[in-house]
């Protein structure tokens, strides 16, 4: 089994996680720039962080045979802070880099006017740089936040197929499916989405434009829940090809639209080979 985790914050994880992810079949990850728990107070804190996402982190991943790409943006939680807003002017430099495959995470946290401005400006950057956009949906007031996000996306003129709306659940998936945007689900140990619920959503809505991620970060999260969800799909009667589509081909198709996804170093890992050696190796 080969797994591409399309949303995971590896800089908040240990190197041992890379080891365990590789053993579980994870071959590629995308790390979106996000909030680090402690609010940042100046643009330099962001550039050091962005530099790590295109420097140290891909190197750390590569030692476990995992290909690491990033998405870069001023995240919704900090977009309202006037001390952080100059980061918007620094983004074009990063959006030109090889390892940057989308603009993100952008979107809403508290749905303020400042967040509106940063969201629209960064969708415009995605259009300008011909990059996909990764849109975070808010934890609070999620349904309204998702609807409003879709409105902003539509106004921006970016094609819906270039947009991933993330952290969805049973109540927001329908809206996003109708919009033509990609639908992302973050499988968490307690909150957001669980493996059994994810399987039920895939049964109901199909596999097209569906992305499953661990969104693992410094909170209560687990980088192996993509694998747990893949196993739950198989147990529920989905075929290995279905699993490969959701866990590998879909993220490759979405982020591949950047023209920058480079999986050449891991291309030789065939899903069948990896499946037979890893799939049931430990159980």
């Amino acid at each position: 089994m080969r797994i591409f985790d399309p949303h995971i914050h590896m800089s908040s994880r240990t190197t041992d996680d890379y080891r365990r992810m590789a053993a579980a079949g994870v071959r590629a990850v995308v790390e979106p720039a996000f909030w680090q728990g402690q609010p940042r107070t100046n643009p330099g804190s962001f550039t050091d962080y962005f530099d790590a996402l295109i420097g140290w982190e891909p190197f750390r991943a590569s030692q476990y045979g995992i290909r690491h790409h990033a998405t870069i943006a001023l995240n919704p939680k900090e977009a309202g802070d006037p001390r952080c807003r100059p980061v918007l002017g620094l983004l074009p430099r990063y959006l030109a880099k090889d390892g940057v495959v989308a603009v993100g995470e952008i979107g809403y946290d508290s749905m303020t006017a400042d967040e509106d401005t940063a969201f629209a400006a960064q969708l415009a950057l995605a259009v300008e740089h011909r990059l996909p956009a990764l849109v975070h949906t808010p934890h609070r007031d999620k349904a309204r936040g998702t609807r409003r996000s879709l409105d902003v996306v539509a106004e921006s003129g970016i094609p819906p197929g270039m947009v991933l709306i993330d952290h969805l659940n049973e109540l927001t998936v329908g809206l996003v499916r109708e919009s033509g945007c990609w639908a992302g689900f973050s499988i968490y140990p307690e909150t957001k989405m669980s493996p059994p619920r994810m399987v039920a959503i895939l049964r109901e809505h199909g596999l097209d434009r569906m992305l499953v991620n661990s969104a693992a970060d410094w909170g209560v999260s687990d980088p192996l829940l993509t694998r747990v969800t893949a196993d739950a799909m198989l147990d529920a009667g989905f075929s290995p090809d279905d699993v490969d589509r959701v866990m590998w081909r879909n993220p490759v198709e979405f982020y591949g639209q950047s023209g920058r996804l480079d999986l050449s170093e891991i291309a030789e890992v065939s899903p069948t080979f990896a499946g037979s050696s890893i799939l049931r190796g430990g159980s």
């Binding site: 420097g55 140290w56 190197f59």
Partner: peptide, 8 residues
């Protein structure tokens, strides 16, 4: 200074 690992 502004490079990714490959550029550096």
């Amino acid at each position: 200074g502004h490079g990714d690992a490959g550029e550096k």
